[in-house]
Amino acid sequence: MEVSFIKEKIAGVLTSILEHDNFEMHDELTAKDVDGWDSLSHMMIITKIEEEFSIRFKLRDLNKLKNMGSLVSVIQGKI
């Protein structure tokens, strides 16, 4: 799957959970930069991404998520 397509899907997930699209998708984007991306919505986002891509994260993967770039590469490694 292409990176741009993965990012588009992630952006869709963020918009649907956070109910806004005031963020720019770039590799250095972190949860702190996005309004409403807190520990509760984080888990909801993770669950939704799992559904969208039909993958399953491990706790270890979660610890590696530092920014959007690492999220994309973790997803890439799973599909």
Binding site: S39, M43, I46, L62
Partner: peptide, 17 residues
């Protein structure tokens, strides 16, 4: 503690949290 636990319970949404 919290992050692993909420991760494990992520499908239970708010209740899990």
């Amino acid at each position: 503690v919290f992050t692993p636990l909420s991760f494990t319970l992520r499908r239970q949404q708010k209740l899990g949290l």
